[in-house]
Write a protein that binds this DNA or RNA. Structure first.
Lengths: 109, 109
DNA sequence: CTAATATTTCGATATTACTTGAAATATCAA
DNA sequence: TTGATATTTCAAGTAATATCGAAATATTAG
């Protein structure tokens, strides 16, 4: 991941609504959630949500697929991993800021 | 680190100039760099830099100390570590997106 | 105290981001 | 094809961020 991509991903996550959307999609796993389900869960107008989904999608953090009338969004874990790797490699130093690899708090998936 | 702090740190890093400043300070290590040195290195007007330094400082990603007439800024590695931990714990899932702990590309420090 | 240096704060402007109803597009079912 | 459902795109407004010269503040030296 280069600086441009990292900036794009960072600014995609640097918003309350988009961070919520992304976290919801992380919990949803590979299966994902439709735009309608996300809008219901987060109680936001469809057009507002669409704006934020487009932003996350442009940054490569989520994928979109159509299933009949619904558009299903899902988190792109590889991309998120690449962002974490970028931050660890470029914004940490001498091991001082190396990831702790804490035991993961697992949900259902 | 809570969601509010994470958003603050993400938006601080989600800017070309501030990411450059932060990376420069990571390389500078504990010693840090004065505002003037940073302005020279990145060729930006003092008042613009000051705006960005204040942003990073508010987010807790950098510390400020005075040394005679100069204000010295330095990266807060603990805070950066906390951000990476937040992203790993909250925005990854089932180990799919766990940090790889690649060998660090070391600079001088 | 006065001058010089280092940096921030102010203020005005410019740019970018967010919000949301309404209109447009896509899919499916009858 | 018509109607219903799901979602996006458009447009026009509001809000938040960024820019940078000039003025203000802090520190040191003479």
């Amino acid at each position: 991941m280069n600086v441009k991509d990292a900036l794009s991903a960072l600014s995609a996550l640097a918003n309350e609504h988009r961070l919520k959307v992304f976290r919801l999609l992380v919990e949803a796993g590979h299966e994902g959630r439709s735009a309608g389900e996300i809008a219901d869960a987060l109680a936001m107008p469809a057009s507002s949500l669409s704006f934020h989904l487009a932003h996350l999608n442009r940054a490569g953090l989520i994928a979109q697929r159509r299933e009949s009338r619904s558009l299903i969004y899902s988190a792109d874990f590889a991309r998120m991993n690449a962002l974490v790797a970028f931050l660890t490699e470029n914004c940490c130093s001498g091991g001082v800021c190396a990831p702790l690899v804490k035991p993961q708090r697992r949900k259902s998936a």
